[in-house]
Amino acid sequence: MLITDRERLRDDIAGWAGRYGRERSSLLPILQEIQKKYRRVSDHAMQIVADLLGIHPIEVYGVASFYSFLSLTRQGKYVIRLCRTISCDMAGKESVAQQLRNDLGIGFGQTTPDGMFTLEWANCLGMCDQGPAMLVNDKVYTQVTPQQVNDIIEQCRRAVSVFATHNKEH
C-alpha cells in the first residue's frame, strides 16, 4: 500500500472514530464505514481501528470476521446477494443463480477479475412473498427471472461507465 493511501485510510478512520466516538460500541459503525468506502476491512485498517479504540487488533478481527456484511477480502463495486432461503428456493432461485454464474463468469463467493461484481448467497432477505429476491448493494430486486439477470448486471456496468467518463453521480 502506498504511503499516501495509508495516510488517507488513517485520516478516514480517525474521522469516523471522531464522529461515532472512541467507545467499543462504535466499533461496528466504524467498520461499516470502512467497508462501504474501501469495500473491505483490511489488516491495516483493523490495526488503525484497534489503536484508536484502545483494544487489541484480534478483537477487531473477531468482529470483522463474524458479520456477513463485512469482508476481509476486497469486494466488487457491486455486491450481488441472492437469497437462498426456503421461499426463494421454492420460487426458483437456483435458475437465477445459474444465470448469474453464466453472465458474470464467476461462482458464489467470488469477485470478477475487473473488481466490478461480487456474487454471494444471502440468508433470508425478508422478501419471501416476492421471491426469488436479491440485493445489489442496498437495492432490492424481487421476482427476479433468469432473463432479467443480464439487464440488472448491464445497468450496474452502465452506471459505472457514466460515472467514470462524465464524473456524474448515477
Partner: peptide
C-alpha cells in the same frame, strides 16, 4: 443502529452484544 448480517443478532442478548461492538 445497523446490523451487519447475522441472524443470531435477533436474539436479544446477541443484539446487545452487537450494539456494544462485539461478535453477536
Amino acid at each position: 443502529r445497523m446490523g451487519a448480517g447475522a441472524y443470531i443478532c435477533g436474539e436479544e442478548t446477541a443484539l446487545i452484544e452487537s450494539m456494544e461492538g462485539q461478535r453477536g
